[in-house]
Design a protein around this nucleic acid. Structure first.
Lengths: 188, 188, 188, 188
DNA sequence: GATGAATGAGGTTTCATTCAT
DNA sequence: TATGAATGAAACCTCATTCAT
């Protein structure tokens, strides 16, 4: 048997890519990513066929991690508001802890690089969160609006809240609470 | 920089840049931008010192145009809700009419290319809109939140609404109305 | 007006390509070709869109020059044998004088790089030579063989003769004469 | 080099190399050759010290096989024409049956990769064919020409005939006969 | 001022070869 | 011996910018 492909090395490349893209944008060079991951330039391409694939895998990796967090905890139990609140809090915790992942995810999402196939793969990891978001879209206030409208508003307001908390970390709890209540009034 | 020969040529380059960036991202080459603007590659650099400057000027140009629209109409009169509604509608009209400008503005805003100076210059064009947004941030529901929170929520929900209208243009009026009311509940 | 693209520079690149390919094969790098032509690496690509195009243009360039030589002189006059003999001699002179062009032409012809379009363009330069070769293919000895058979034999024997003359340059005239007579017996 | 484990594996690599070079030229990568041979990338280098060695061995392998065929059959008996005709037919059969080997052999022969040592080793396998070719070169028509001239013409015309037969396989026998007679007139 | 050819650094990717397993 | 991950030089090509015309 030859050397095995190392999951750690793969992850190191993904992590390096996130940091590098955070620092310099989607134009971040594969050479710099490899260097930051402490592998040779060519090694990157034994783990990812090309840069586009690397970026898609990075997006998937980030989203899977986020969904795993969102789907943990007291999932199916609780009222809709409680479950939505859990999503809200979990997302904010993640976004504050890993600002580079959040930023990279947004940039990749906005770019034309993410393939429909990757989006499908991402969706397959949504788990019980999807059910909560669907319920959210069927509430009274969303009458006449597409089902996914409420979850889009949730995502948008999470981003807003994250931005403000990042600027005023000391007020984290209060900002999170107030922003969530504002959100809830919009969709309830 | 001396006074420039042809304002039309300058604007042609900015317009071409917006279209090209919309099509291929911030990595759009100056050569392609020049070609689309029907000027020589070198000419671009007589109007803009370098690519970064071009992108900053493009951002400024887009924002100025948007602010000009937002500040037109029955500005100071009317209730806060009416004035906010005017902003909402005007933005959506603009975003639907010029999707490439909206997209480019978002991409530039998220990138690290826009300098603090540019942001200041942008702010200097905000006009009476700023007053309305300030009032919005001082309303009851925003108690305890930063003043700019409400306007950030406004911007975020405008984006969400634009996305949904872009996908269902036939429902434009209804989606706009319902989304605005949802927004208003959040901040009122 | 800006600087004009220089035909000399273009030709310098083609010449450098021929020498470089002669020395190291079709894998000759564009960097080395550019260096030998005394232009920057990037300059090569302002004259030729890519390496494949460069090689096709090189093939065309070589063939055009050869056809120009073959079509000069007392073309339409003389017997078929005299005209064929003119082709024979002219080719040998060229092949001995420019061995690298001959070799590169053979290598390119054998590779899969030359497009049908290039071959058509080459054919359009064949001029009166084509008429002579056609007549050659219609002679008695070629009965039952494709028309182009005789000209293929001519080309093949020219190559053989060139090889021997290259190894025994002192016997040039005699080898050429004897080889031509051998050829003529084959097709007459 | 010690005795090699598996002659089959060695031959599989050589066969794969021929096919791969036929498909993509001398630039064919060792990785693809190994893959086609169903061995690991590194294994290729346990059988051949490096790529250049592999190509030399491939050339030798092809030539040995061809000489083995040419030297089979009613070798020493028969007239010179009959023996030459045997070479002619045998070569054509081989070239039509293994077009990729013929093409690769030509490409390698023209490249600068084949060492003098390899050419010597090839020559050592020529067997009784060498005698026939020598006799051919001593015939009347070749007076004044190098001894090897006739055999070079033979090889050249075999190539021409092969090309035409490849394009008109239905006329194989007739084309072969006529072309051989044309050849014979040249050297007899 | 306008042009676009010229530049060479830097981008992505391939590749022959090595070497840990 | 066999494997295939690891390597980094080198390949082709793009690009922002300069500058001769």
């Amino acid at each position: 048997m030859a050397r095995l492909r190392s999951p750690q090395k793969r992850q190191a490349i993904l992590d390096a890519a996130a940091l590098e893209i955070d620092a310099t944008g989607l134009g971040a060079s594969t050479a710099r990513i490899a260097k930051r991951a402490a592998v040779a330039e060519g090694t990157l391409f034994t783990y990812f066929a090309n840069k586009e694939t690397l970026l898609n895998e990075l997006y998937l990796d980030i989203k899977i991690e986020l969904y795993r967090l969102l789907n943990s905890g007291p999932s199916a139990n609780g009222t809709l508001k409680e479950r939505t609140r859990h999503i809200w809090t979990t997302f904010l915790d993640w976004a504050i802890e890993f600002p580079e992942k959040r930023k990279v995810s947004l940039q990749l999402n906005m770019s034309d690089l993410i393939t429909p196939e990757t989006r499908e793969r991402v969706a397959s990891y949504s788990g019980t969160v999807a059910q909560t978001l669907t319920e959210l879209g069927q509430q009274g206030a969303s009458r006449g609006l597409p089902i996914s409208f409420a979850s889009s508003v949730l995502a948008a307001m999470q981003e807003v809240a994250t931005d403000f908390i990042a600027r005023q970390p000391a007020d984290r709890q209060r900002l999170s609470d107030l922003a969530f209540e504002a959100f809830w009034k919009a969709v309830d």
